[in-house]
């Protein structure tokens, strides 16, 4: 559905997107994750043909987005970061306007707008002027606005910024449901991984215009930290060098560190029985043993701090 090949976009000061390849399949919910300024919006704008790539190509549904933006925009619904509506019109009127820009006759657009206001839960507020709306209501209205044209692809730029946590949950669930019911391909960008990972089929991590990794959450965790499956924290007495040597011989174990009375072992939770057995066998008293899997958030954090040098 979306195919980006070797995309480069230079601005005066910096390279916003650096040789990026990206493919998104039909019906998929794809999360584009990255810190602010990683190039997420630039990628989105080039998908809509709103910015011209320095080199490389962007195809949406086999149309070149740069040379045929009108065709592409007919099937893409775009919810921009900080979406706004004409203040003195109601949400309902704004939706009709969007519909008419997409060539829907006014009457049909009105019926559709009324239906969508129900879907997003703004049946009552939808007829008030949009300047009275909260940020969350604006985002929901934005989603309805995107749906007015019956998009095949929805692109949502930072859709969760400024909504309260409960609102975020509802909003994301709404997006996911819509995508699955209507078979809409969704590309959503965010800098908050833990919010997005729940509803995405696949995520891509973007740092400094480069896609560091893509895949579903598990794949990503493996790709980003091969061997670093997790940490096991052990408190046992006494721990001799022999014990440590023996632990090192267990399969799939990484480094072992001693840290204020605790042993920190790199490895997955599958090792817990073996470690405890070894310790007990060696005559150590086991007080505590626990494992901590690396969550994607940890990995993500790790990459953001370290930048691209870890690849």
């Amino acid at each position: 559905m979306i195919k980006v090949t070797d995309l480069v976009k230079d601005y005066k000061q910096k390279r916003a997107v650096d040789h990026l390849d990206l493919t998104i399949k039909k019906g998929e919910v794809f999360g584009l994750l990255g810190p602010n300024g990683a190039g997420k919006t630039t990628i989105i704008l080039s998908l809509l043909g709103l910015t011209e790539p320095t080199s490389g190509s962007v195809y949406v549904n086999d149309w070149n987005a740069t040379s045929e933006p009108l065709k592409v925009k007919r099937i893409i619904g775009y919810l921009p970061d900080n979406v706004g509506f004409p203040e003195n019109s109601s949400g309902f009127e704004s939706l009709i306007y969007t519909g008419m820009l997409n060539g829907i006759p006014e009457k049909k657009a009105a019926e559709k707008a009324a239906g969508l206001l129900k879907v997003i839960g703004l049946e009552d507020a939808g007829y008030r002027k949009t300047k009275t709306y909260s940020k969350g209501m604006k985002q929901r209205l934005g989603l309805a606005d995107v749906l007015m044209k019956d998009p095949e692809i929805m692109i949502l730029d930072e859709p969760t910024t400024g909504i309260d946590p409960k609102g975020i949950q509802e909003f994301l669930r709404l997006i996911r449901n819509l995508s699955k019911q209507k078979g809409i391909t969704v590309l959503l960008s965010s800098h908050l991984l833990h919010q997005v990972q729940r509803i995405c089929d696949r995520v891509g991590i973007l740092v400094d215009g480069k896609l560091l990794a893509e895949g579903n959450v598990q794949e990503l965790a493996e790709k980003l930290s091969p061997g670093h499956k997790g940490r096991i924290i052990v408190k046992a007495e006494p721990i001799t060098d022999d014990v440590i040597r023996e632990l090192m011989n267990l399969p799939d174990i990484g480094t072992i560190k001693k840290e204020n009375g605790h042993l920190i072992i790199e490895g997955s939770s599958g090792l817990l029985p073996y470690i405890s057995k070894t310790l007990v066998y060696r005559g150590a008293d086991l007080y505590q043993i626990s494992s901590k899997e690396y969550s994607l958030d940890d990995i993500y954090q790790h990459y953001f701090e370290g930048g691209a040098e870890h690849v």
Binding site: R74, G77, V83, F85, T98, L101, K149
Partner: peptide, 14 residues
């Protein structure tokens, strides 16, 4: 400034 511009630009109009 009000964020309506990018919304209009994403519609299929030149």
């Amino acid at each position: 400034n009000s964020g309506t511009l990018s919304r209009i630009f994403s519609q299929p109009v030149p």
